[in-house]
Amino acid sequence: MMPEALRTSLQARVAAAVTPREAAVDVMKELQAHYGWLTDEAVGEAARLLGLSELQVEELATFYEMIYRRPVGKKVIHVCDSISCWCACCEEIMRHLKERLGVEPGGTSADGMFTLLPCCCMGMCGDSPAMSVNGTPYGKLTPELVDEILARERALAS
């Protein structure tokens, strides 16, 4: 269930938009932040808020890289695999993460903490290789630094 405060704030966001659709991405992101991922229920809520059908919300939701339509862990790790990070051996970082979390890209660690995903250029090319954990960017990664980050993010979550 969506908390009343969130509903009110999203209704205000939609009302302030030039057209309701303009607020669609904001609404989806806020609902995702609340539910952890954009659940079917959240798609329904978004549709009602925006005056669209569920399918019309789905058309938008499935287009964007950072809207998740499947369950994810508490935190989502995105590892950039575009050219600058590739030059800086992002493949090694990905390999390390797969090993540490025991998952393939797309998978969620057994404890439900981390979902591992690749992503397109994060604009962190000067600090490559880079990844983000729930939106927090981390650059100049090494396997050791990745371990530290995992420990820190895990501690922050509990």
């Binding site: 669209l52 059908s53 399918l55 019309q56 058309e59 939701a61 499935t62 287009f63």
Partner: peptide
Amino acid sequence: TDFGVTGSAGRVY
């Protein structure tokens, strides 16, 4: 409004 296109790139549905 109940039929449309989802996904993108090679996965449009």
